[in-house]
Nucleic acid binder design. Sequence first.
DNA 1: ATGGTAGCGGTGCTA
Length: 259
Amino acid sequence: MKIATFNINGIKARIEALTEWLAEAQPDVACLQEIKSVDEAFPRAHFEDLGYNVETHGQKSFNGVAILSKLPLEDVTRGLPGDDTDEQARWIEATVVGRTAIRVCGLYLPNGNPAPGPKYDYKLAWMKRMQARVTELLATEEPLVFCGDYNVIPQPEDAAKPEDWKTDALFLPESRAAFRRLIHLGLTDAIRTRDPRPGTYTYWDFQRGAWERNNGIRIDHLLLSPQAADLMRETGIDKAVRGREKPSDHVPAWVDLDA
DNA sequence: ATGGTAGCGGTGCTA
């Protein structure tokens, strides 16, 4: 079962690039972030025609997550528990029914800039809520995959120029510590474990020729519970997608599970 | 220190 994460930065603008990548990469499951669309405006029928089941958790203009799956999806839930006043669409869960059932959580973690400030406070509070949800799900001892745009650069080697990110919410010590706390619950960073080659990033800014200079960062992650890590066969980052027409600023990252 | 680009939506916000 090939599970991918892809921050598409607007479904309307990315429908062609996404369709091309789906055709060549053939993921069984694709978790999408920043669909920037309400549910009613998501081109559901287009992806259903390609053989995908479609579940969205959208929002006007900003954020928004979705799961496309060739396999049946069960027990779909929307929103990260822990704050009923949070109206930002950043979390969706579903159980993918393959040979082995996998609980997949697609997430778009808050950016947090500028830091310090209310946006950074929201990011850290959100990560605390995620910690609680992950803890809850780990107790089920099911195979779990938490994938998405984490907006966290875990280590200096995950940035081409780490010194440029010293005061950025993506690399501040509190953000990295909160990410480490997730890892220390027992999750495996699939890409880091299986594809730790330097210079393999998942995001290059649209500005200042970041792509041309390979000035990237690795912020899109797939974290696996022990039961999912045991099934891990292969991982990858589809870097070439960034060099095409009308690209997102992120590229897909994926894991293949024996499930 | 600044401003550079992209998407959404029709202005300024978010990243």
